[in-house]
């Protein structure tokens, strides 16, 4: 298979050595479990079985996504219909995390999000907004909606922007699509501010997953298709990070000057094969 950099081959040979000390695995979802697209998307070959095998191992398993195009319940329902054995309580996504922050700080958001995400914010006061929250709004990223968000931010004495993730793009069945990070950058530039990122790669977000598992960072392996947000984010928290060559993966990722994964694997099924094999030795 594709192994463009010799460094990657060496790393790929080394990462399984740390598997025996592992106590938990965190999986990114889109691009690792399935490819999104029209009609909800399709599972990546071998991933349904790979999740089942991890679950029946002695490893703790959590799912960590920056998905903000649907409520967590709807999103998990979609994956269950694809055949994945997943429970809502195992899934960490940015919307519930941002709702907790808004309530704690008594903030009233203006929302620039996907219509299907709105129910997550039902319990939040949105009247007379004093901050802006953006997610992967897809077709809602119109000029007019961006302009409304901009006008609210620029009118605030201290503009406050929360971005649910900072991804550049993701892959759908019909091609690459712009992600929320692009629009976060646009508003940052327009208003001369820095957004608060909730979701990957924010350390707080990974830490909340580790807390839930009751594990230390060095005991946990993160597997994702996003080099910067999944792999780099996890590594900065002290975890190991593997990149799968599915989803948004591009061969140039293996020569990236800023982030080097602890290993590169063809897909989740291959990763799980290796993990389980080394744990049995």
């Amino acid at each position: 298979m594709r192994r463009s950099a010799s460094r990657a081959v060496i790393m790929a040979d080394q990462w399984p050595r740390c598997v025996r000390e592992m106590k938990g695995v965190i999986l990114d979802m889109c691009g690792v479990l399935y490819d999104s697209g029209e009609g909800g998307g399709v599972p990546i070959e071998g991933s349904v079985e790979a999740v089942r095998r991890l679950k029946s191992s002695d490893l703790q398993l959590r799912f960590c996504t920056n998905e903000t195009q649907a409520t967590r319940e709807k999103f998990v329902g979609k994956l269950k219909r694809m055949g994945f054995d997943i429970d809502v309580r195992e899934v960490f996504s940015p919307a519930p995390a941002v709702v907790a922050i808004l309530k704690e700080r008594c903030l009233r958001p203006h929302l620039l999000v996907h219509d299907d995400l709105l129910p997550e914010f039902d319990s939040v006061d949105k009247f007379n907004s004093n901050c802006v929250v953006i997610g992967d709004a897809a077709d809602n990223f119109s000029y007019q909606n961006m302009n409304t968000a901009f006008q609210i931010l620029i009118s605030l004495e201290k503009p406050l922007l929360f971005s649910m993730g900072r991804g550049r793009y993701y892959k759908e069945t019909d091609g690459l699509k712009l992600d929320v990070g692009v629009y976060m950058k646009a508003l940052e530039y327009a208003c001369d501010l820095e957004a608060d990122v909730v979701g990957k790669p924010a350390p707080m977000f990974f830490q909340s997953v580790l807390n839930d598992m009751g594990l230390q960072p060095h005991e946990v392996l993160m597997i994702g298709d996003d080099l910067v947000n999944d792999v780099g984010g996890a590594q900065r928290c002290g975890m190991k990070g593997l990149q799968v060559r599915t989803g948004k993966y591009r061969p140039s990722d293996e020569r990236d000057p800023t982030v080097t994964a602890d290993g590169y694997v063809d897909n989740l099924a291959c990763a799980v094969d290796t993990i389980l094999k080394y744990r049995c030795v």
Partner: peptide, 26 residues
Amino acid sequence: ARYYKRKDGLALGPGPFVTGLEYSTD
């Protein structure tokens, strides 16, 4: 340009969208 002035207030210029595309593709 970050924004410009319209009769109905400030509106986004091309700069934010250029910056977004720059970020998306590095």
